[in-house]
Design a protein around this nucleic acid. Structure first.
Lengths: 203, 203
DNA sequence: ATGTTAATGGGTCTGAAGTTCCGTTAAGAT
DNA sequence: ATCTTAACGGAACTTCAGACCCATTAACAT
């Protein structure tokens, strides 16, 4: 059976191929955290993963391609959301989770690197957008529940509220450099809740 | 007179040195817009600037160093803010300006590239933070004026309000990939105003 | 169990990024 | 106007990311 035009790893995805992918993605994450996106070198990733350099170049071809695949993998690992029964508490829990993630030495560096990679390549950007779409959909439930309970006006766009919680935190991480602490998290959650109650996110 | 330890360009900053810097920074901006941060090559910048490759390597040494200097230059070019006498209108004007900037083919690509560079190098990050500090300080005036007029509670942190306007727009540009249009701008401005009125940004 | 061939991996090669050397030009001090 | 030397620029050199070749290994169909 010949399978022209298929990407390598698609015809026989099991066994060794899967182990290689797992090992390479872990190594890529390590390299991104330790060196940053601009110093990411596929040969170095291959060494860390104890995998042939040729394999990495053949299957991922570029650093951005590798990061895109890493993002696809990250999107599949879902983190369960809280459901306390109060909008303010749920949003605060979400904001604090984001801050914990972004200030974690490994996770924070990884997110920064991955976002940098996405600005350099459309396919990586698409993978990043899918990642956030998954996360936002996961947390939208607590906003919809708040609408049900009458805490928020009907027609409130749940995704917009969740994005509004994260946005100031990412802005601090990437642009302004202001401290990312619990106070910032709580303020981001409060601001999103206040705007939502004012009906700003009614579509 | 010998000046050990000084960076090149510091002892004789006038004439040719200044022309070289100007020409290189413009070329660097062009290259970033056309190729993105990951493909930024100092030799290519030198060619565009019609300047010796050695000069670029000697004065800026790395791509992140060059971007850091570019940011310092960008921070000096101030854009005057509006002052309509109404908080909502001022914030909306600010939000629309940010959206226009980020969706402009040249400016948008430049900002994305510069933010990517900042995630890869602490000194570039510092230059980026200074850039935003300047911009935020510039626009803080309209929030302070709103506090004076009694539109907002006393003690409102003006910088936080301005950051709150920009944050969702940058989040769209860098993370979620949602459309950056005038509706998004107006919503960002409204949300920031609503949160500010609710006293979320009182420090 | 066996065969087919997808996928891996070591080795080699090449073009370009980045460094060094040294002669030339011009900024700024006198 | 003249001098000192900071800063520039061309060219040669080094290094290494990334492409290519081909032998080896092991997924999956039978």
């Amino acid at each position: 059976m010949d399978v022209e035009g298929a990407e390598p790893g698609m015809v026989r995805p099991g066994g060794r191929t899967a182990r290689v992918r797992e090992s390479v993605l872990r190594a890529a994450g390590d390299a991104l955290v330790e060196q940053g996106f601009d110093r990411l070198d596929l040969a170095d990733v291959a060494r860390r993963a104890e995998v042939g350099k040729t394999t990495v170049y053949r299957r991922w071809s570029s650093t951005t391609g590798l990061v895109a695949d890493l993002l696809t993998d990250m999107a599949e690992q879902s983190v369960p959301r809280t459901d306390t029964g109060s909008l303010d508490e749920d949003l605060r829990a979400n904001a604090r989770l984001v801050v914990r993630t972004l200030t974690d030495p490994r996770q924070g560096a990884l997110f920064a690197a991955v976002i940098a990679a996405a600005t350099c390549d459309p396919r990586t950007a698409e993978a990043l957008h899918r990642f956030y779409a998954v996360r936002i959909a996961e947390w939208s439930g607590c906003v919809d529940a708040a609408v049900e309970r009458g805490e928020l006006p009907a027609g409130t766009d749940a995704g917009e509220v969740i994005r509004a919680v994260s946005a100031p935190l990412y802005y601090r991480l990437l642009a302004s450099g202001d401290p990312l602490d619990e106070a910032a998290a709580d303020r981001a959650a409060e601001a999103a809740a206040a705007a939502a109650r004012a009906g700003v996110y009614v579509s």
